[in-house]
Simulated scan of single mutants.
Amino acid sequence: LEYKQQWRGGLLMKVNPQYTSQTCSECKHIAVDNRQTQSKFECVKCRYVANADFNAARNILAAGHAVLSAEGGCSKGRPLKQKTSDLREKVA
């Protein structure tokens, strides 16, 4: 992913994936029982139901945003909006 993001002019943030599949992306409750099957996530506290991978992806995205916010976000010389890199050539 890292080389592809550099190729496209994007930003790759590394976040700790620990408990992202057991944490509710709605209420942030963490429990092993939240994920009873490989594909289904159901929070035992707030009853939020989603695909387990979708729920984990939301948690990972939120963790990446938290890292950016703590580090000063886009003020580190990065553009506010990402644009595709001109290094990529169009394939005919």
Rank of each mutant, 00 (worst) to 15 (best):
R78K: 08
H65M: 15
K4Y: 12
Q22E: 14
I60S: 03
G9Q: 09
N55A: 01
R35I: 00
H65C: 15
S69F: 07
K76E: 13
L61N: 06
N51D: 02
A92N: 13
A63R: 11
A63M: 06
L80C: 07
V67S: 06
R58P: 02
C46R: 02
Q22M: 14
Q18V: 14
C27I: 06
A63F: 04
Q82K: 13
M13Y: 07
G77K: 09
F41N: 00
N16W: 09
C24E: 02
L87I: 04
K4S: 10
N34W: 04
Q6D: 11
F41L: 01
S25D: 03
A50C: 05
G73V: 02
S21F: 09
L1E: 11
N55M: 02
K76C: 14
A57S: 15
Q22N: 10
T23C: 05
D33L: 11
L80V: 12
Y19S: 07
K14T: 14
Q38F: 03
E2L: 14
Q22V: 14
Q18D: 14
Q18Y: 15
Q82F: 15
Q36K: 15
E2M: 10
Y48D: 00
I30P: 01
P17C: 03
P79C: 09
K45Y: 06
V44T: 13
I30M: 05
R78A: 08
C43K: 02
Q5E: 11
N59C: 06
H65I: 15
P17Y: 04
S69P: 02
R47Q: 07
K81A: 13
A70P: 05
R8Q: 12
V15Q: 03
E42V: 11
T37H: 01
L80H: 06
Q38R: 07
R35K: 04
I60C: 06
S75H: 12
G10C: 07
S69A: 14
L12N: 04
A57W: 04
Y3C: 10
Y19A: 05
E2D: 13
K81V: 12
K81F: 12
Y3E: 10
K83G: 03
Q18C: 10
H29G: 07
A50L: 05
N55W: 00
S39H: 08
V32P: 14
F41M: 00
V15A: 04
K14R: 15
R78Q: 09
E26Y: 05
I60Q: 06
E26W: 05
Q6C: 10
V49Q: 09
C27D: 06
S21N: 08
L87S: 08
Y48I: 00
S25F: 03
I60D: 03
S75W: 13
